[in-house]
Amino acid sequence: MENKPISKLTYEDASKELELILENLRNDEVSIDTLEKVVTRAATLSKFCQDKLRNTEQKVQGIIEKLGL
């Protein structure tokens, strides 16, 4: 499984990777040895996605507020 650095990911990349992890988990393609690593990666990706969503929402709010409409 590719492990790009989180900082170089887009939201879409991260989201796709999460789905892939789920798929792999469902298809028993993850060994117990790597499970922890995979779940940690998934958690990191999820956090990244959440942050990105929150940041985007805040930024949009900020931009709108700056417009002063």
Binding site: Y11, S15, L18, E19, I21, L22, L25, R26, D28, V30, I32, L35, V38, V39, A42, S46, C49, Q50, L53, R54, T56, E57, V60
Partner: peptide, 28 residues
């Protein structure tokens, strides 16, 4: 729209993570 957009994705992410956690737990 932006709020809806992020809300939708947050929901998807939440669902995905739930499934992921469930799958991982199941595996364990």
């Amino acid at each position: 729209a932006s709020k809806g957009f992020t809300r939708l994705r947050r929901g998807s992410l939440h669902t995905l993570m739930n499934r992921l956690t469930a799958s991982a737990s199941h595996l364990v």
